[in-house]
Design a protein around this nucleic acid. Structure first.
Length: 263
DNA sequence: ACATTGACCTGAGAGC
DNA sequence: TGCTCTCAGGTCAATG
């Protein structure tokens, strides 16, 4: 679930629900989610404070507190946020439960516990220390920067798109969508791609991610010509009607149309 | 440099 | 119904 578009949707959700309310209670239900902080420290850092604003960088969500520190959220494979009133409405795998003084709760749910939570003082330092590349939707990340970060690389294009140190935000399924729309086979090496193809990938990358946000990152709202809602071997290619194929690329499942995405 | 594999975790869904 | 198996949208480390 949580690639750049999903995280952007979570960010907006948090803005719409959880800002400017005093945090009354904090419950850490899975210590393993915490990065460099103890449950006590996290609780102390949140309690009595309010979230004032949010920020997203790649697949990370940051919530600014009025004590000037930032709650960092990464969602792993299965994370999401849920705001609700009654505890019996809580989702199934709550790992952090925040209760506001208005009686509502904000839950960070993460079934597989592969997400991460932390508290830091500076987003800039965090991004730097993590070695994250530019956020893919940053307007400053233009075609030249894109080309630059790929230059002289012999990596497979799909791996490069997903490499958070090159550029931050793209994960397995949006990489597949981008390459499908660009008509590029995921295993092609970067140095096998002429500039024209790279331009097409760049263009699709920006558009697909923006549009996915408009669709609330919900596959059921995405257009018929997208591959994403049809990730299923044997499904029909929305472009040519051929059979969608599933292969492994850098250890992950890649879905593609062997007819439309030539090697 | 880059690909691959397995580990980290838990549970949904498929197949029997 | 219940059991077993496979797989999952991420990242990290070890290995070739």
């Amino acid at each position: 679930m949580p690639e750049l578009p999903d995280v952007e949707v979570f960010r907006k959700y948090m803005d719409a629900t959880s800002l400017n309310q005093k945090i009354e209670e904090v419950e850490v239900k899975a210590e393993r989610i915490l990065q460099n902080i103890s449950p006590g420290e996290l609780t102390a850092g949140l309690k009595g404070n309010r979230f004032e604003s949010t920020k997203r960088y790649g697949k990370y969500l940051f919530a600014h507190l009025d004590n000037r520190s930032w709650l960092i959220m990464h969602f792993g494979m299965t994370g999401f946020l849920e705001y609700f009133k009654e505890l019996n409405q809580a989702p199934s795998h709550v790992r952090l439960l925040i209760t506001f003084t208005n009686g509502y709760h904000l839950a960070y749910d993460c079934q597989r516990k592969l997400g991460q939570l932390d508290l830091v003082n500076s987003v800039k330092n965090f991004v730097k220390q993590r070695g994250l590349g530019p956020d893919v939707l940053d307007p400053n990340f233009d075609f030249n920067s894109f080309k630059q970060t790929l230059s002289r690389s012999r990596a497979m294009i799909k791996s490069a798109l997903m490499d958070q140190e090159r550029m931050a935000g793209i994960g397995n399924i949006y990489a597949d969508e981008i390459l499908f729309q660009a008509g590029v086979h995921p295993k092609l090496k970067i140095n096998q791609l002429p500039e024209k193809r790279l331009k097409e990938i760049y263009h699709q990358m920006k558009n697909i991610l923006k549009e996915a946000i408009d669709y609330q990152a919900d596959p059921s709202k995405m257009p018929d010509f997208w591959l994403l809602p049809k990730r299923d071997p044997g499904a029909q290619c929305p472009a040519c009607g051929g059979e969608i194929e599933k292969i492994k690329v850098s250890g992950r499942s890649a879905y593609l149309c062997p007819n439309c995405q030539i090697k």
